[in-house]
Design a protein around this nucleic acid. Structure first.
Lengths: 208, 208, 208, 208
DNA sequence: AATGAATGAGGATTCATTCAT
DNA sequence: AATGAATGAATCCTCATTCAT
């Protein structure tokens, strides 16, 4: 009973509150975008008063940015990219694609919100958008590195084009699945995408 | 040209007012999405008071839906799909892709707004979203018809998969261009997409 | 065919339009009161555009006043007050009460709207309220005249008090019926009211 | 009385603010009814911004309902119904009537607003109306209990009829006073009403 | 670490009314 | 006799944010 304060759950637990807020915010922002996410709605969903949200986050912009950051990390975890692979390039590309497909089915909030933010064009850009584009750029570079290893005959420009195309396909297929729901077999489509990108890489290498 | 026409001005011209409102609305909604589009902003941009907008459109939902309808038609016109084609399937696919790419560069509002609406998941779906998904479905079917002609060896399911993949690539590449701006050569990437889709069709045909 | 314009129903028939507007307005105003009655709602219910309402009526105030006038006349007709009656005072009072009760069940709009207007206390009094209070005052006087005949022993002040009380009872019973619906047998209650008022008159006469 | 109390002022005093809002709202709603009561007017009268009103009340409906609740309680207090009575039934009925009359002169807002709400017939009934009808029903039952004691010869139906008639008279006389102002001696009329109701009770008892 | 209360700006929409035709 | 279009003021209500406690 001496350490009552410590034991007495619920009172003053900053970390947990922050998580509750973020949990509510991902859900809402992932469904309605930046403008559609009101602090009041987040407050209602997480049970904490609006003013408490402002204790944890500077402003709405800050909250959404944190949402993007956290959901990106959650997504990264879900992708479970295996260290160094073995096998033919096609095999490796296919495995990677399957992993990504699965991660997008399991944790779609990150990309859904990210794409909504990315498409918007407002005078003062939300920090969440900047963050999304940054992690996306990093992802682009990582993929390009792998591509450069898998297809050593491609020059830098070709690798970049290929990466851009690969990501575009992923985004587009994700949208299809978001729109059409479970009717779309995202894993199968990503497998097709992998094969097709692989062939394109091979062709581009030969053309050079 | 009579003095009457000169004198009235400003009083009662329903059709033109409707156009002015829609012009303003596409621009704003195409940049900021559903929630980001305020009636006040549309009013400011088109010069008519907010209450006049409500004479022409039942509510915001109705306005956005009309925006989608009109911008879809504008985009359709911009695609200028050529009547009877000649040439190999690859050539034909490539020409079509180039046309679409150009139309998306020239009239990006339709797809940008459409994708924003499509990604949202709100309890009461905006009618604009429904409309977008409908015209998109129609587009899907039209493309599938052409694909069935170009690649007669494909069964219905394969044609559908191919079409889905083709549209996904278009969406994804469009997003890339929206995000990275003129640095992305959309026409070139669509040319690559055309070839990739063509090869995918060929392989899908062989697998059967 | 020469008198085509005259025969060709529907085009330009001022009287009928006016009636249509009033029909719609009684219904709405009788249900929602002055503030609750919007020109748009009346327009929607009668099928004529709002601007047409302003062709027939100067403004909303004018419309509501006209509603009161017309519904008062309709009510007057419904009361079918018989010329000169025979019978004992009690019999005559009872018959009159029954007639009023029936008329209020059949045409409640007049009194419902009238009472709503009467209870309101706004800085600039609606003309409809003035009109209602006027016709009510006239009614009061007419009843007082009859009362003076039926109960000749009452002095003027007593007749006035009795009339006030009689009307108050009518209003109050009407409210009860409006609130509780058909569960309230208005005719029976008015019969009780008649008898009770009759006895009160008798007593007042004796006290003098 | 500490300096703290002096210094804060204005910041955070929920209970008092709520009262101020209600004070303003009774006054306005009691004069203009539901539709005639604008949040802006209440805000102007109580000094708090409109948005603050929404911190204390969910919406206008909620505010008006609270107004009814509070003004009913205020009225109940004003009636000062005396505990144990002595005297003949007539004496007791007369005393009660006088009390009610005085309370209605002193605190007319409750009944004025209540009757306005009661007379309205809108598709979605305001909660305030429901509340008014409820407290009114409770009042009805309380009066019926007293009536059953005062006039033990009456059966249940007769007591109900008598109560309905008593309340109707009160309502109607109140309307008369509202319409004609101080010219109407409400206390005197309620005295008459008391005698009339008493006699009616006697007659109803004999008829059985 | 948290929150009850407050607030000005802005949200969508409806209002009564006008006017050129 | 009637109406399509327009309009400024007002409607209810939500917004993001602040601040004293």
């Amino acid at each position: 009973m001496t350490s009552a304060q410590t034991t007495r759950k619920k009172r003053a637990n900053g970390v947990e509150s922050r998580q509750r807020i973020l949990d509510a915010a991902v859900e809402i922002a992932g469904e309605r975008g930046y403008d559609g996410t009101s602090i009041a709605a987040v407050s209602a969903k997480c049970g904490l008063p609006a003013s408490s949200i402002y204790w944890h986050f500077k402003d709405k912009d800050d909250l959404i940015a944190a949402v993007i950051e956290r959901s990106f990390e959650a997504w990264l975890t879900a992708v479970e990219l295996p260290g160094e692979e073995t096998g033919t390039p096609l095999e490796r590309v296919t495995v990677m694609a399957a992993n990504v497909a699965k991660s997008l089915v399991d944790a779609p909030d990150f990309l859904r919100l990210g794409l909504m933010l990315a498409l918007e064009r407002r005078p003062t850009e939300p920090r969440g958008r900047t963050v999304f584009l940054q992690v996306r750029d990093i992802t682009h570079r990582k993929i390009a590195e792998v591509a450069a290893v898998l297809f050593p005959d491609l020059d830098e420009a070709a690798v970049d084009t290929l990466t851009t195309y690969a990501i575009a396909g992923a985004d587009g297929l994700f949208v299809q699945r978001e729109v059409k729901g479970d009717a779309v077999d995202l894993v199968a489509l990503f497998e097709l995408h992998a094969r097709v990108v692989h062939d394109a890489a091979t062709r581009l290498a030969q053309e050079r």
